[in-house]
Structures are given as structure tokens and as C-alpha cells.
Amino acid sequence: MEPPSDAPEHCPGTQSESAGKVSACQGCPNQSICSSGATRAPDPGVHLVRNRLSSVKHKILVLSGKGGVGKSTFTSLLARALAAQDTERNVGVLDIDVCGPSQPRVMGVVGEQVHMSGSGWSPVYVDENIAVMSIGFLLKGPEEAVIWRGPKKNQMIRQFLSDVDWGELEYLIIDTPPGTSDEHLAAATYLQGVNLDGAIVVTTPQEVALLDVRKEIDFCRKMKIPILGVVENMTAFVCPKCHTPSNIFPPNTGGAAKMAEEKSIRLLGRLPLDPRVARSCDEGLNPLTEFPDSPVVGAMEAVVRDLIASLPSSDAGAGDGDSMDTS
């Protein structure tokens, strides 16, 4: 894969046959490790992650090339909707946005602490059947910045994937930062051995977001991550006074529907922009129960139904009880 952070400019790559043996390797602190061949052995973390996540039935990544399109909001809505359908179903949310963790806020568990036990880190419970893990729980306050370069972020993500004691989970939903870099590569690398169900790609309708989202789709294809579908967020805003819909983020190039068609992926649904939902996420409340009349709730139900139906049902028992629509 990629060289260490202090590698020389012409590093052949740690996985290369010539790692540690070419002239560029002279003086690199990693040279002896590379030439020993240890770097070409599989990362021991992959094995640890596989063991830990063997008790998790479905693993879903929530991705988007673009920031601020609603990855974290969608992740929380998906977790809450899945958990509400069946109280026996355990859902986990893992936030691997190291520099800007939003899950503690949108799930309403700001300031909670993570405890260590013999079996690993205990996640924070939002509800009896929703557990959350985020770096936000490890910081002193919201103002504390995590100023880390890639390798340290990768290490943290590996720990999140291998050391959190989730117990038996039916769904683990992984919220990611924007981009196609260290965090994404770390997640893709460590999840390759755990039959990841796939990724849901979130976008908003305007071209400047779609531009980055197409890059994320390219990333998924390069990394062989199956794409479960696209969700378009903030589709239209309905004026609360005169009920006129406005395109705040105009779909000037056809929006997510056109992109999904071009890239031959499914459009799982479109979520309208409802300020009440935005506000309740900011306050850490559950919009699904706070505003059951919101158009977002109905749209979300359709997305969840579609998603469950499309998940690979190779594992026995997966998908049973999916008709229990409680809301």
C-alpha cells in the first residue's frame, strides 16, 4: 500500500518487491523493516478487526466525497429508523471522522465518556438498542482539536474497529469524513476481511457536490467496495409559510438521479430539507419521533425498506422481521 509518513520521496512502496532494497531506501527509518519483508505480510489489524466484527451481521459505510451534505444526519436517521423497527435489533454507529466528529451531537450524547473493560471499549448507548462510538467521547471538550497526520488517524480507526465491545449487532453503520484519503483507505483495508455489505453514498443535488461524489464512487470502484445506492439529501425546501418548494441547492446538472443513472447505481431515495429535522439533529433529538409528520420521515422509511431488501441475505436470519414498520 502506501509508504510511511517519513518515507523518502521516491519510496517504492512498502508492499513492493523492491521495498527496502532500492537506492531511494538509503537512510529511510523504515528500511530494515521493509527489507525484512515484514511490511508485505498482511496487517495484523485486519485479523483483529475480523475477529471483533464477527458478531456484527451487517456493516454499512456511509460515504460522500463532499462535506456537509448530511452523512452524519443520514447515519443517525438510518440507525434510529432501523432500531425503531425492532427493539430486539441492536444497531451500532461508528464515527470515523477524527477531525470533525458529529455523532455525539446528532445522537444527543455530547459529553459522555467511554469506559474500558476487559472485553474492550464500551460504546455509549443512546437507547437500549443503539450504541455509538466516536472520538468525540475521548476529547476534553468540543474545542479540543485533533491535529493528527494520517498514520495516527489510521491507528485510531483500527482501534475503533477492533477494540470496541459492541456485543451482538445486527447493523453497524460507519460514518466517515469527506474525501478519499487516509480514513477511507484505513476503513477499506480493515473491512476487507469482514464481508462489508457496501457503501451508501450521500449527496446534495448541486453539481459542486456531485463533482466530489463522483470521485467517491470512483474510489469505491478502485477499492472494490460495493455501492448499495445513492441518497440525495436537501432535495427541496418547502417554505413553511406559502408551501412553495424551492431548490436551495439547484440540481443544475440533473441531481443525484441523473448521476445514479450515469454510474448505474441505485437511487435509494431523496430526503427533502426540513428545518425542523436539521434543528432536532443539532439538539440531539430524534426527528423521527419529534416530527412524525415531516416529509423526511416518510422518505426515510422508504429508504430503509429499500435498503433492507437490497442487502445481501447470505447470513441466515438477516432481514427477518423487516416488515415491522412501527412508525
Partner: peptide, 15 residues
């Protein structure tokens, strides 16, 4: 291509 992703870890981005 405008759809190409730049899948780089830190060191390459820094360079």
C-alpha cells in the same frame, strides 16, 4: 478526468 478520485495518504498529499 473530472470524475477521477485522488486516493492518496498523507505523505503524498503533503508532497
Amino acid at each position: 478526468d473530472r470524475d477521477d478520485s485522488v486516493v492518496w495518504r498523507g505523505p503524498k498529499k503533503n508532497a
